[in-house]
Design a protein around this nucleic acid. Structure first.
Length: 497
RNA sequence: GGGCCGGUAACUCAGUCGGUAGAGUAUCGGCCUUUUAAGCCGAGAGUCGCAGGUUCGAGUCCUGCCCGGCCCA
């Protein structure tokens, strides 16, 4: 695709000219030995005279980010994967034709390799005095404006590669993302968990309440669903005799995109035999506290101006108590549908009145009235069984599940429970659910019989948890939008891009 | 889905009351041996998101649509 832009045309012409001169335009025989960051760190403190005495040759490759011609001197900045470093191309250091070549054919955006010794300029900047250089890749498109960079959010997401070239903070953020994920992975491995991979394509999309993406398998002539959660497969592995497993990978949910939702997102799920949701709360505290120390060096982070402290133990509040105490719903209103409808109406909260499950109404009211108030890490415990189809009933109160959700900065970050391992109860819950399929399209359309069968073989008592990794990354990178922490967030397709 | 804001040169942005489309960066030509948002002189560069409408005349006003951002559901 050729663009009419003048700058691009000129670049293509330069490339053609180079080829007509017999120059190999996309060579791959240059091996950088040094990194911008380490050169600067190591030699920054030396005086110009001390540096002048060093005859060592440095070999660096990277992208030209700025070019300043001054007659017989050309200053430029070279950016590699660590940092930028200034280079100086001086007429009296090179053959005439090489100097002219640099002047004429090396543009901002090009990737070049340079060799040369170090000097320190009058302003104290460590600089490579170029002895030789080689064009490695010609840039055919110009980089964005050097001072403001690439600001347009849409362009940043659509052309993340340019965003990464121009914005060091974005590169840092995604490095941090990887570090956080590695820390979490290391934690579970060190705790004796086995990392596993279960199917991404499911014949029945279960394990959560969400609309799935549908895909089609030609040879098998069947629909498959991109998984909305790995839960049911991980529990099969607990049945199979792995006592501690985790999976850290993508889930897919067919819902709208927003600053909080991307159709594919990264989820950690882990399952632990002979543990309860109480154990998982302790584990979760330990994980986040350790992560905070690792990433920030302290137990605290700042998210969007709010200080969040991960020092355990965290606050715990029962689901119904939170509706009363934080949601401001009078106790006598909570259990009476008519009063609850009136209350919701006054608060302009729309309840799905077709849904007979009062637990669903509570959940809605919880999202509206309680969630935003849960800033410090808080475990909300004991959810109604009717909105927790995979969780174990509480022994004391069988209408409630041994379940918690973790909230931080007003966002749901984790969801966990002691797992339901009575196949009779599980079947009954699925059957109850499926009756409601018509009013709730997020309910899976059929019972996962194989999962029930697995439970019939016997699943040891266990507990499992899911942690929304993208939200964790948002917290630790102080990002207001999920799109800032996903390299290539989904956007609507655009014809001319 | 609703409300508000935005879309103008490759990038960052101006564009007044409706009257021939602007700046800086980048690009091209020239000058310059310590510059760093280098500087100076000169030049080229536009489907003003798209489609209609109003008007003698629309980047500007009106309607619809597309894309994005923020807020709400």
């Amino acid at each position: 695709m050729l663009e009419e832009s003048q700058v691009i045309k000129v670049r293509f012409e330069k490339l053609a000219k180079l080829e007509s001169m017999g120059i190999k335009t996309y060579p791959n025989d240059f091996r950088p030995k040094d990194k911008a960051k380490y050169i600067k760190e190591k030699y920054q403190e030396l005086s110009p005279e001390e540096i002048e005495k060093k005859t060592q040759e440095f070999v660096v490759a990277g992208r030209i980010m700025a070019k300043r011609e001054m007659g017989k001197l050309i200053f430029a900045h070279l950016q590699d994967d660590t940092d930028k470093i200034q280079i100086l191309v001086a007429k009296n250091e090179l053959a005439q034709e090489d100097f002219d070549f640099f002047k004429k054919f090396i543009d901002i955006g090009d990737i070049i390799g340079v060799k040369g010794r170090l000097i320190k300029t009058k302003t104290g900047e460590i600089t490579i005095l170029v002895k030789s250089f080689k064009l490695l890749t010609k840039a055919l498109r110009p980089l964005p404006e050097k001072y403001h960079g690439l600001k347009d959010t849409e362009l940043r997401y659509r052309m993340r590669y340019v965003d990464l070239i121009m914005n060091p903070k974005v590169r840092e953020l995604f490095r941090l993302r990887t570090q956080i994920i590695q820390y979490i992975r290391d934690y579970f491995i060190s705790q004796g968990f086995l990392e596993v991979e279960t199917p991404m394509m499911h014949p029945i999309a279960g394990g959560a309440a969400a609309k799935p993406f549908i895909t089609y398998h030609n040879a098998l002539d069947m629909n498959l669903y991109l998984r909305i959660a790995p839960e049911l497969y991980l529990k099969r592995l607990i049945v199979g005799g792995f006592n501690k497993v985790f999976e850290l990978n993508r889930n897919f949910r067919n819902e709208g995109v927003s600053s909080r939702h991307n159709p594919e997102f990264t989820m950690l799920e882990f399952y632990e035999a002979y543990a309860t949701y109480e154990d998982l709360m302790k584990r979760t505290e330990e994980l986040f506290y350790g992560l905070a120390l690792e990433i920030t060096g302290s137990s605290k982070i700042t998210y969007q101006g709010q200080e969040i402290d991960f020092t355990p133990p965290w606050k715990r509040v029962e689901f119904l108590d939170s509706l009363i105490e934080l949601g401001g719903i009078p106790k006598e209103v909570l259990f009476e549908k008519e009063k609850l409808i009136k209350f919701a109406k006054e608060k302009r909260i729309e309840l799905n009145l077709k849904d007979p499950r009062i637990g669903k109404w509570w959940t809605k009211l919880f999202e509206e009235l309680v969630e935003p108030k849960l800033i410090q890490p808080t475990f909300v415990v004991k959810f109604p069984v009717e909105v927790s189809p995979l969780a174990r009933r509480s022994d004391e109160d069988p209408d409630f599940a041994e379940r918690f959700e973790l909230y931080i900065a007003g966002k749901e970050v984790a969801n966990a429970f002691s797992e339901l391992n009575d196949p009779r109860d599980q079947r009954q819950r699925f059957e109850e659910q499926i009756k409601l399929r018509e009013i709730d399209e997020e309910i899976p359309p059929e019972i996962d019989e194989d999962f029930i069968r697995a439970l019939e073989y016997g699943m040891p008592p266990c507990a499992g948890e899911g942690i929304g990794i993208d939200r964790v990354i948002m917290l630790f990178t102080d990002s207001p939008s999920i799109r800032e922490v996903i390299l290539f967030p989904h956007l609507r397709r655009k014809e001319d891009l």
